[in-house]
């Protein structure tokens, strides 16, 4: 089973890092992962998009995804092309209140006020990790501990001091969603 995620938002929201963290976590679990990034020169406020594919066998997915199962929508700006590719029914994590749930009528939508959650655990910079924690709580694509380990591995030495705050953000994102779980069991490995 291959699972595709598209992440869309604007520069400065941590889009690329959250996608890379998920892809690395899956890789460290011995699975196949692919990460395609697409960002307008990493400008703050410019479009930032990434896609992650995870599977247990060599991947069939294209580096430009034909369609995707799930989404993390961090900002409504620039999100339209990515959202147009979503297959109906899959999970979508939305960053409230920036993204209107009505924009994704066909998806199983989960909203989280990532900025408020991040602030509540004193990790105001870690909005992307809140969204990733929430996404993984819904999809259970990887072990939460793998996310923390991957996050730490990706931190450059001069950012090591952010590790604890990022870990709190991942956990708080997961806790922010009361996930029924049952209807999503088929997505766990």
């Amino acid at each position: 089973m291959e699972r595709e995620l598209v992440v869309t938002g604007v520069g400065g929201q941590g889009i690329q890092l959250l996608a890379k963290t998920l892809a690395l976590a899956a890789t460290r679990e011995g699975r196949h992962a692919m990460l395609s990034a697409d960002y307008g020169g990493e400008m703050r406020g410019g479009p930032s998009k990434a896609s992650v594919v995870i599977g247990d066998r060599p991947l069939r997915a294209l580096p430009v995804l034909a369609s995707a199962w799930s989404a993390i929508v961090a900002h409504h700006r620039f999100s339209e092309p990515a959202l147009a590719r979503l297959r109906p029914g899959g999970p979508a994590i939305l960053n409230l209140p920036l993204v209107d749930p009505a924009s994704l009528p066909a998806m199983t939508v989960y909203g989280v006020d990532a900025a408020a959650v991040a602030k509540s655990v004193e990790a105001p910079q870690a909005i992307g990790f809140v969204l990733l924690g929430a996404y993984n709580a819904v999809t259970r694509l990887v072990d939460p501990a793998s996310l923390v380990a991957a996050m730490q591995e990706l931190l450059p030495p001069y950012r090591r001091q952010h590790a604890a705050a990022n870990a709190r953000a991942l956990a708080a994102g997961a806790a922010a969603l009361d996930v029924p779980g049952a209807d999503l069991t088929e997505v766990s490995r």
Binding site: A33, M34, S36
Partner: peptide
């Protein structure tokens, strides 16, 4: 560019 920039296991 796809070969240069895609990250994959």
């Amino acid at each position: 560019p796809l070969l240069a920039q895609t990250r994959i296991g």
